[in-house]
């Protein structure tokens, strides 16, 4: 069985779901085929066709690390690259909600140049939101029995903002996603997700790093500080105060990373002038261009330290 050269959805369900008519109606709005797999079966839903039996696909199952959760949803683009991959604790309802949300996103997407990329992004956002919603409303999963082929979970214990947190993680999980999605700490931001923009900067064992490039599996025992851990006794950190005072941001997306990076910069040694501040902050991009005020904020704190 070959996957098509256009965007498609994959759903891996631990138990074969029953697809009611309501579900198929939602699928038609989506305009992208859905390949639904269970350990012993596989079905493809085209936009118009009747569902077709294609049999199980252990290879795809393995590649996408399915089987650990009740449902794993994967969105592939036309080159079969993974655009989104999410686990959910419940299959049928979540998949229905996800497909419904995705269908709405597709209908709402404007026509014209760049529509394909826009569609993919809307699909990914809608699917992600629907699955997160399902995770939030579901009870914690106690059925941890994974089917064969699912990745072994690793136990990792971290100290995040002074609190010990135990996580069971897939080897692929990076610190940024663990903070945002497993621990609910959304202060660290996902910008480029490839170690270039610095929006995900956090402090690990006293050193600033890009959390998007750190596998959690490597961090047993590590101490992590995020923007949420800076407030002491209801008081903002002096660097946070300085960013407010100097108006050192516009949209604010890069700000948590800027602030943590700036705090680490001063811990590393006092920058002697603005050039050294700029060089030391070169790993944190600000697309609003708030740089002059960011430098002013850091200069202010450095001067008082």
């Amino acid at each position: 069985m070959d996957l098509p050269n256009r965007p498609c959805l994959l759903a891996f369900c631990r138990r074969a779901p029953r697809f009611e008519e309501a579900f198929r109606a939602e699928l038609r709005a989506l305009g992208a085929p859905l390949f639904a797999f269970a350990p012993g079966s596989g079905t493809v839903f085209g936009a118009d066709d009747e569902p077709r039996d294609i049999g199980p696909h252990p290879e795809l199952w393995r590649i996408h690390g399915a089987g650990r959760a009740a449902l794993t949803v994967v969105l592939l683009d036309e080159k079969q690259r993974v655009r989104l991959r999410r686990d959910a604790p419940e299959a049928e309802g979540t998949l229905l909600a996800a497909v419904r949300e995705a269908g709405r996103a597709v209908c709402a997407a404007p026509r014209g140049i760049g529509r394909r990329e826009l569609l993919l992004n809307s699909l990914a956002a809608a699917l992600g939101a629907a699955v997160l919603q399902a995770c939030a409303s579901a009870r914690p999963v106690d059925d941890r029995k994974a089917v064969s082929g699912a990745p072994a979970l690793l136990e990792v214990s971290l100290v995040v903002n002074g609190q010990r947190r135990r996580l069971q993680v897939e080897p692929r999980l990076v610190l940024l996603d663990a903070l945002r999605e497993n621990l609910g700490l959304t202060g660290a931001k996902k910008g480029c997700d490839m170690g270039q923009c610095g929006a995900c900067t956090v402090i690990v064992d006293g050193q600033r790093v890009n959390s998007c490039l750190k596998l959690v599996a490597q961090l047993e025992g590590a101490r992590v500080t995020t923007i949420e851990g800076l407030v002491q006794g209801g008081q903002l950190h002096p660097m946070q105060e300085a960013f407010l005072r100097e108006d050192a941001f516009q949209c604010g997306y890069c700000t948590p990373g800027q602030i943590l990076s700036a705090i680490a910069l001063l811990q590393e040694g006092k920058p002697r002038d603005d050039d050294e501040i700029r060089e030391g902050m070169s790993g944190n991009l600000c697309r609003c261009g708030a740089y002059p005020n960011i430098v002013a904020a850091i200069r202010g704190v450095a001067g008082r330290a």
Partner: peptide, 8 residues
């Protein structure tokens, strides 16, 4: 690179 990358 950047300080963050050099640290890792």
């Amino acid at each position: 690179a950047s300080p963050q990358l050099r640290n890792a």
